[in-house]
Design a protein around this nucleic acid. Sequence first.
DNA 1: AATGTATGAATGAAGG
DNA 2: CCTTCATTCATACATT
Lengths: 203, 203
Amino acid sequence: MELQAQQPTEEGGSIQAAGSSNRWAPTPPQLRILKGLYYDKGFKYPTPEQNQEICLHLKQYGQIEDKNVFFSFQNLKARERQKLKEFRNVRVGGSLDLNFGSTSSTDDGRSIDLNFGSTGSTSTDRSIDLNFGSRVGYGVDGSIMEQRGEYHQEIETLPLFPMHGEDIFGNMKTTSEGGSGYGGGSRISLEPSLNSYGNADIA
Amino acid sequence: MELQAQQPTEEGGSIQAAGSSNRWAPTPPQLRILKGLYYDKGFKYPTPEQNQEICLHLKQYGQIEDKNVFFSFQNLKARERQKLKEFRNVRVGGSLDLNFGSTSSTDDGRSIDLNFGSTGSTSTDRSIDLNFGSRVGYGVDGSIMEQRGEYHQEIETLPLFPMHGEDIFGNMKTTSEGGSGYGGGSRISLEPSLNSYGNADIA
DNA sequence: AATGTATGAATGAAGG
DNA sequence: CCTTCATTCATACATT
């Protein structure tokens, strides 16, 4: 493991104004939508294409990049697990032999889904509805907090499965993500399947 | 420090329950043991088993949860690095306070003692061997990762906790951990790294 | 009481 | 997917 010096690295390309943090900070709408997708819709395994769509949509609410969406889902998933389970930090093949007995062999590790899991489509409506419930109860500790009844909820629908390459927003900026072209269905130089579809058996 | 406007996070961060500060506060013994483990023993990468073990032990000294132990080590490490970085930046004349281990014993009538009984040579060595010096860490089957230790550390095998006859297998906390034995080989790591997110394209 | 510091906790990001 | 790092927020506590 090489040490990573995450120095600020004053790169001139920071989107943020000088002085602000370099790392992305989700705006409330962005956060709400992302969490709603994950929790309310049970949408946990977005493909890169879907990430792009989500990102594109969320750009209405502030600066955001694809990787932010990607990391959001990754972290949501990881932390949900850590919360539901018990701070697992498993390391296989460790030298520190703390192997006490061999009890607790009922390892699950992947049954913590709420429900949903409908990565498919509703036959007629092939879009992810972003109008999830308004109640947010996903505190870090399960604490229930009330939500201000003031916030307006914008009704929106994000197409997750573009049929013809055109989204409902008229945003066709696909294939212009930097030349890599990992999205848009034209993955040429990338690995076969990097999305988590292969192991979406958690549902 | 100047007061900075806090991001109006919807669910994350500032959703703290009003009125009650539920933040865990380590008792002197807990703090001492934790710091002792980290500094004196150079124990910085606890596995979940060790994490739970530590937590269990520390429960004699007050309320504590797994995540508290987890965060403690995380923070301990983070602050250490942070401080070290600052020192190097300023190159201050010594006085790097490595005086950890035993802070002034605040005799609050609860003299703590790390003098646990012998682990007892039951069958499995459940004492955490912290003789790390230059030992290899937990590599996965082949990768050798050395523990980073940058200061003195007494090479000794000190029994972490007193065996009260209780075993760590009996989880008396949450329902059923069910996640101890994860290294059962159910993890497949034949996964590609990431998407094309490495570009870090800043708009 | 206000300011500063220490530190628990949360989270974005990265590495493997 | 899992673990870890860095940064930041929020608060308990100490100092003035």
